[in-house]
C-alpha cells in the first residue's frame, strides 16, 4: 500500500527525516512512534504530498506521490496534527465541501450520513464547527479523512488533547476502521500503539530505530521480564534467584502481599527460567505464591531502543 524508500527531508542543514525506508501492507494498522520532533509529522506530510522530500520516493497504491499526485492522493484520507477545519462552516457544509473537493463519485447524501453515523457526530451535524469542543472537532477531522472512502488512512496524533473517554472512543474507532482500511497513525503515547497497532515503526531524530510487530517488540530489546512472589527471607531469596542460570537481573519490588516478597526478574529472551526458579525456591523450602509474565511496557522498549541507538552512535 505504501512504499517509502530512502526518504530524506532537509531543512537548511538539519535533517528532519534522514534516509528512512519502510513499507506498509494492505490492511495493516501501523503505529508511527517517536518522541516530539523525531520527524513523524514531516514524514506524514511527505506521504500525503503536502511537503516534497529532498530525495527518495513515496509510492501510494503503486502511484508515485510526485509523479502522479492526483491518482496517489485519491487513495489517501489524511488527518493532520491540527484538524483542517473551517470554523465558519457547519459540520454539514464542511463535509459537503470535502466530498466535492475529493471528487467523490458515491451517492453524496447516503455516503455522508453513513460516515456521520460511524463517527457519531449526528447531534452536532447542523452546528458551526467553531462552536464545537476539541473532541468533536477531532471527530469531524476524522470524518473528513473518511469522506473520499480512501483505502489508506493517515492520522497524525489522532488522540492528542482529548479526554480519557474520548481517547478510548477514538481508539475503538480506529480499530474498527482498521478492519477495512490500511491505517498509519503517529503518536508519542505508547499505550496507544499497544491498543491499536499491528506493527510499530519507531523513529528517532529522523531515523528508523525499530520496525517490528507489536507482539514481537520485546524481542527487539532482547529482555524478558517476570514478576515472582515468594514467601521467604528477602535478601536470601534475591541472591538465590540472581544465581540462577539465564537470569540477567533481579530486584525487589516495593509491593507487599502478606509476608511475601515481590521480585522483578529479567532474563534473556531465549531462556525459559520459570522451571529453574520454581525448583530453586522449592528446594530451599520457601513458597512461591505467584509467577506472572511482566511483558515489557512499550515505555521500556522505547527507552531501551533509543538508548541502544545512542550508544551505537557514540
Amino acid at each position: 500500500m505504501i512504499e517509502i524508500s530512502n526518504l530524506v527531508k532537509k531543512y537548511g542543514k538539519n535533517y528532519a527525516v534522514n534516509d528512512i525506508s519502510f513499507s506498509v501492507e494492505k490492511g495493516e494498522i501501523v503505529g508511527f512512534l517517536g518522541p516530539n520532533g523525531a520527524g513523524k509529522s514531516t514524514t506524514m506530510n511527505i506521504l500525503t504530498g503536502y511537503l516534497s522530500a529532498t530525495s527518495g520516493s513515496v509510492r501510494i497504491a503503486g502511484y508515485d506521490i510526485l509523479e502522479n499526485p492526483m491518482e496517489a492522493k485519491k487513495h489517501i484520507g489524511f488527518l493532520p496534527e491540527h484538524p483542517p477545519l473551517y470554523l465558519d462552516m457547519t459540520v454539514k457544509e464542511y463535509l459537503d465541501f470535502v466530498f466535492d473537493l475529493k471528487k467523490c463519485n458515491l451517492n453524496k447524501k447516503k455516503h455522508i450520513s453513513e460516515i456521520v453515523d460511524v463517527i457519531n457526530i449526528g447531534d452536532v451535524y447542523k452546528r458551526p464547527i467553531g462552536h464545537l469542543s476539541k473532541g468533536y472537532r477531532q471527530r469531524v477531522g476524522i470524518a473528513q479523512a473518511l469522506i473520499s472512502s480512501p483505502d489508506l488512512l493517515i492520522f497524525d496524533e489522532p488522540t492528542v488533547g482529548l479526554d480519557p473517554k474520548q481517547i478510548i472512543e477514538i481508539r475503538e474507532l480506529i480499530n474498527s476502521l482498521g478492519k477495512s482500511h490500511t491505517v498509519i497513525l503517529s503518536t508519542h503515547i505508547l499505550p496507544e500503539v499497544n491498543a491499536v497497532c499491528d506493527r510499530v515503526v519507531i523513529i528517532n531524530k529522523g531515523k528508523i530505530v525499530a520496525n517490528a510487530k507489536t507482539s514481537e517488540l520485546e524481542a527487539v530489546t532482547g529482555v524478558r521480564k517476570m514478576k515472582v512472589k515468594v514467601c521467604g527471607p528477602r535478601t536470601e531469596v534475591l541472591s538465590a534467584i540472581r544465581s540462577i542460570n539465564g537470569v540477567t537481573g533481579a530486584e525487589i519490588l516495593p509491593e507487599r502481599d502478606g509476608d511475601s516478597t515481590a521480585l522483578l526478574v529479567e532474563s534473556d529472551t531465549g531462556a525459559d527460567i520459570r522451571k529453574p526458579i520454581f525448583n530453586t525456591i522449592a528446594n530451599r523450602g520457601w513458597q512461591m505464591i505467584g509467577l506472572e509474565a511482566f511483558s515489557a511496557s512499550l515505555e521500556d522498549v522505547f527507552i531501551a531502543i533509543i538508548d541502544k541507538n545512542k550508544k551505537e552512535e557514540n
Binding site: 503536502y50 489517501i76 493532520p80 484538524p83 483542517p84 473551517y86 473537493l101 475529493k102 473528513q144
Partner: peptide, 14 residues
Amino acid sequence: KLGTEQLLLTSPVS
C-alpha cells in the same frame, strides 16, 4: 493559519 491549506493541498486538486 487554520491549517486548512493542508486539506486543500493533499486533495486531488492541482
